[in-house]
């Protein structure tokens, strides 16, 4: 029995294996968010997009980064597919729901709503990539040159409801990270009095800073603070 259970497929099919995948891909996506937010923050130089475009170009053309990008897409897909499988299993585990449940007494709503928040993020992701990433990569593929992402940003964020969608996407991201960051460590078994507090503080700070930074970008552009 022990040998059979040690095979990889058993691990990845197991409930804990799936959670480990969720945690690892989650942390990987978090690391991507750091890069993404850092480079986007170059717009705050307010230098007409010079710094931003410099780094944008680096990210869009550097062969190492482009290879990593394949990993990133895979990370997204794994995270999403795994999440959907978990959602299905969890849903099936309780066929009859409680008539009355006071779950707020024992847990936070966002920790119970990772599937919902994740779905909102997925919708946002589709909108967001179709604004920037997909047209840009398509152009690179067809014409061999990058689009002016900075200019595209300035154009797209002139529409109030698009700005609103982006801000809401960032709000979803905040709640998703607020639970997900800490939860990833717990799923990987990293729970110790020595560093729990650090994870807690860093996780909360990260969940606030990164979405706030992202949300501020369409806003400053919309209000003309950055041209």
């Amino acid at each position: 029995m022990a040998t059979a259970a040690k095979s990889n497929s058993v691990f990845f099919k197991s409930s804990i294996g799936k959670k480990v995948v969720m945690g690892l891909t989650g942390l990987f996506l978090i690391s991507f968010l750091i890069i993404h937010a850092t480079i986007n923050a170059m717009i705050f130089y307010n230098d007409g997009g010079v710094t931003f475009s410099h780094w944008g170009h680096f990210m869009g053309t550097n062969p190492i980064i482009r290879t990593l990008e394949i990993g990133l897409v895979a990370g997204f897909i794994l995270h999403i597919v795994d999440g959907l499988m978990l959602w299905k299993q969890n849903h099936d585990a309780r066929p009859t729901k409680y008539a009355y449940s006071n779950a707020n007494a024992n847990s936070k709503w966002y920790s119970r709503s990772m599937g919902l928040l994740g779905t909102l993020l997925l919708i946002f992701l589709v909108i967001h990539t179709s604004h920037f990433w997909i047209p840009n990569r398509a152009n690179q593929f067809i014409h061999g040159e990058e689009l002016n992402l900075y200019q595209m940003m300035l154009d797209i964020f002139q529409v109030w409801y698009i700005v609103l969608i982006y801000v809401l996407g960032c709000v979803s991201l905040f709640w998703h990270l607020l639970h997900g960051f800490k939860s990833a460590f717990q799923s990987l078994g990293l729970n110790h009095t020595k560093y729990n507090k650090t994870i807690d503080i860093v996780g909360t700070a990260f969940s606030i800073v990164v979405p706030l930074l992202f949300a501020s970008m369409p806003l400053v552009i919309f209000f003309g603070l950055i041209r």
């Binding site: 197991s14 409930s15 804990i16 294996g17 799936k18 959670k19 480990v20 978990l86 299993q89 969890n90 099936d92 585990a93 309780r94 779950a103 007494a105 024992n106 847990s107 936070k108 920790s111 119970r112 990772m114 639970h179 800490k182 939860s183 717990q186 799923s187 990987l188 078994g189 990293l190 729970n191």
Partner: peptide, 30 residues
């Protein structure tokens, strides 16, 4: 179902079994 680390179990456990046990199980299983 699977664990989403919401902490509801620990909060409702009459014997106050801690979530650290779940982390330990994750480690043991990994």
């Amino acid at each position: 179902g699977n664990c989403t680390n919401t902490g509801a179990c620990e909060a409702e456990c009459p014997k106050e079994i801690s979530l650290t046990n779940i982390a330990r199980l994750n480690r043991e299983y990994i």
